[in-house]
Design a protein around this nucleic acid. Structure first.
Lengths: 198, 198
DNA sequence: AACGATACGGAACCTTGTTCCGTTTAGCAA
DNA sequence: TTGCTAAACGGAACAAGGTTCCGTATCGTT
């Protein structure tokens, strides 16, 4: 590894670097206002660049979304082991981690929907989330199962997908995704009585 | 009411009636093959009519979907009271009814996704499902709550939406929507308040 | 048979994602 | 400073899908 994060193998031109930054900012702003499915042209306009520029930096729309949210996804992934180490029980850690995940999805207008969309264009996005988060979830799930708190026949993939699905449409005030996820997690529990610290 | 279901107020022309039938058949066939989001042009081609004909009979794509599935939605709605009357407990009735609903959604490729889509065009569809099924679900939920089997702080709307959401992407063999719905319903059971996630 | 209302077909239009290419510009070297 | 070239840019053009519109064909009645 002879190149640091800063100076890459072949440095990009200054205007290109500047534009990438501008684009990320514009996209983030538009996503907040109009959701992640906002027209590419809107983002280009907001950033003051042509659509071609977007596609040169981010080959597909999914890549742009990933770039915008990468930090937060990483943070979520990294929180898994930390929670496991610091929580009273594995089940508590799992619950808190799921809450982080849900908070993330619920605050990103339309992200949950797009994540499950079978639209081929969003494959990369789907894959990225899964690759990054399923292992973390598996770890938490295994720990909770090992401690006997929850049933062990549910894969992390299924849980995450279920939770992701429940987060769709969470903008509707009549629909509280967080509460439903809590119900789902409650349903995961092995035996109702004797809930305290083991 | 001076007109029966058969002879309407102003009878449609014979070719129009024929076409409507043809269209429903074609749409049903296409929906099975390609999902409910299949291009309108495909349906028109399959039916051997122009796209204009589709829009004349069904002002929006949602109206076509409703027309295709109306019978089954009605059947589901009517099953509610029956189950309540014949099941051992209200909770059992609720569980079975939810199963009916889930089976319906899971077997209609893409329907669940479209149902929750915030795309304005599908408003009618969303509304129809809600209008028809929420009252039924409320009845079951109230009965189960009254018998003390489940917590009573969840509205039918929320439950149905949650279940509908969980059914999205059920075509994936790695994802068993039915099981997750069962977990959710399990979580509904009256439990020590404020369990788990703190 | 003729006529008006009804219904039809599909071209045309709009929106949105994506590609392509002629033009502009940054960065370097003379 | 000036020239040169690879890199980057802008936006027109293309593709795909939903929806509208209107000239034409057909039905049902007189």
């Amino acid at each position: 590894m002879n190149d640091s994060d800063e100076g890459a193998a072949r440095p990009k031109r200054a205007d290109a670097r500047r534009n990438e930054e501008t684009l990320l900012d514009a996209a983030a702003a538009i996503f907040v206002m109009s959701g992640v499915e906002a027209p590419v042209r809107d983002i280009a306009a907001k950033a003051g660049v042509g659509v071609g520029t977007i596609y040169r930096h981010f080959p597909t729309r999914a890549d742009l979304i990933i770039a915008v949210y990468r930090h937060q996804v990483e943070a979520c992934a990294e929180a898994g082991p930390v929670l496991l180490a610091t929580s009273a029980t594995p089940h508590a850690a799992l619950g808190q981690w799921i809450n982080l995940f849900v908070d993330f999805l619920v605050t990103k207008h339309g992200l949950a929907a797009v994540l499950q969309s079978d639209n081929a264009g969003f494959d990369t996005l789907h894959t990225y989330f899964l690759d990054r988060l399923v292992p973390v979830c598996t770890q938490l799930l295994d720990a909770a199962a090992a401690s006997g708190e929850i049933r062990s026949d549910l894969k992390a993939f299924e849980l995450m997908r279920g939770v992701g699905n429940l987060c769709i449409g969470a903008e509707d005030p009549r629909y509280d995704a967080r509460r439903l996820v809590e119900l789902l997690i409650a349903g995961l529990r092995q035996a109702p009585p004797d809930v305290g610290i083991t």
